[in-house]
């Protein structure tokens, strides 16, 4: 029973990180109908930037804020400079550009920071809470992870549901030409979508970095699971991304705890195949079907 509670708590905390990655992918899919294969490399870069800032200033929080801001800027610049050119082209063009960007960013990170993985500090203690004399697998830092992801998800929900900017973003996302006719600056909405997505990605990067090592290729597994979470959640639904992320975090935590961690990637793919077979458009998709 203790093991079950431990695995559940651990699943919620890793699930929150998957949710942030899934949110990053979903925001970009909603804005521009592109799967951002460069997301892993983008959040790797912002995490390296955070690491450099933390090392030189000694302040975790300064690095944390810089990571989020650099995510915003990186996302906006990438959309404006690279993606804008392929937005109206066939989808494969954007995939190729994103893969090219991935390769480029990984190479650049290796050149600047080297390929040897380094450690990354946690915001709070990673020693589990003591409850009734037993130490659970949930630390103050895990509380921080869960709370900050909830805050970001709520902030995004508020932006989309309750502000005029969110309304314009939702209009631009699904029918850009109609939105344009009504005076919406669709290009700006796309840029903003990418900026917010990259910020969510940057958040996932700094949150997950303490539990893995920070290296040019070390975020790829997180991204694959985040992608599964996004697809399970329906790819265009931010609440779906959060539920998909936490659900996957729980499921994979049980698999890892009861069957062994080697099975985790396989389990993620089994879940993906199963969901796509039962509900091909994902669990929370608002669209009826998707062209493949």
């Amino acid at each position: 029973m203790t093991k079950f509670i431990d695995l559940t708590l651990n699943g919620v905390s890793t699930g929150a990180i998957y949710a942030a990655v899934a949110l990053a992918l979903v925001l970009i899919w909603r804005a521009t109908r592109i799967i951002n294969f460069a997301q892993g490399a983008m959040l790797m870069i912002t995490t390296y930037i955070a690491s450099a800032v933390i090392n030189s200033t000694g302040s975790y929080w300064f690095g944390f804020v810089v990571a989020l801001l650099s995510g915003l800027i990186l996302g906006a610049v990438i959309e404006r400079v690279l993606i804008r050119r392929v937005e109206s082209a066939p989808p494969l063009n954007a995939v190729i550009v994103a893969l090219g960007l991935y390769t480029l960013l990984v190479a650049v990170a290796g050149m600047i920071w080297g390929n040897t993985p380094r450690s990354f500090p946690a915001a709070f203690s990673i020693r589990g809470y003591d409850i009734g004399g037993t130490r659970v697998l949930f630390a103050p830092n895990d509380s921080f992870i869960v709370l900050v992801v909830i805050a970001v998800a709520l902030g995004l929900a508020l932006l989309f549901r309750a502000t005029g900017l969110g309304l314009q973003m939702r209009a631009a996302a699904f029918q850009p030409e109609v939105a344009r006719l009504l005076g919406v600056r669709v290009g700006r909405m796309f840029t903003l979508g990418w900026a917010l997505a990259a910020m969510a990605g940057a958040l996932a990067g700094v949150l997950v970095a303490p539990s893995i090592f920070l290296g040019p290729n070390d975020f790829d597994p997180i991204l694959i699971i985040g992608f599964v979470a996004a697809v399970v959640g329906g790819l265009d639904s931010p609440p779906g991304a959060v539920i998909g992320g936490v659900g996957l975090g729980l499921g994979l935590s049980y698999v890892s705890g009861y069957e062994g961690s080697a099975l985790v990637p396989l389990a993620a793919l089994v879940i993906l195949v199963f969901v796509l077979m039962v509900r091909p458009s994902g669990l929370f998709s608002s669209t009826q079907g998707r062209r493949v």
Binding site: L167, R170, A171, V178, L182, S286
Partner: peptide, 19 residues
């Protein structure tokens, strides 16, 4: 009709007032 199917009636018309 060309309305945004995923936005409410009021939201649809509000987008028209963007200017």
């Amino acid at each position: 009709v060309g309305l945004f199917p995923h936005l409410t009636v009021l939201e649809n018309v509000t987008v028209g007032a963007t200017r």
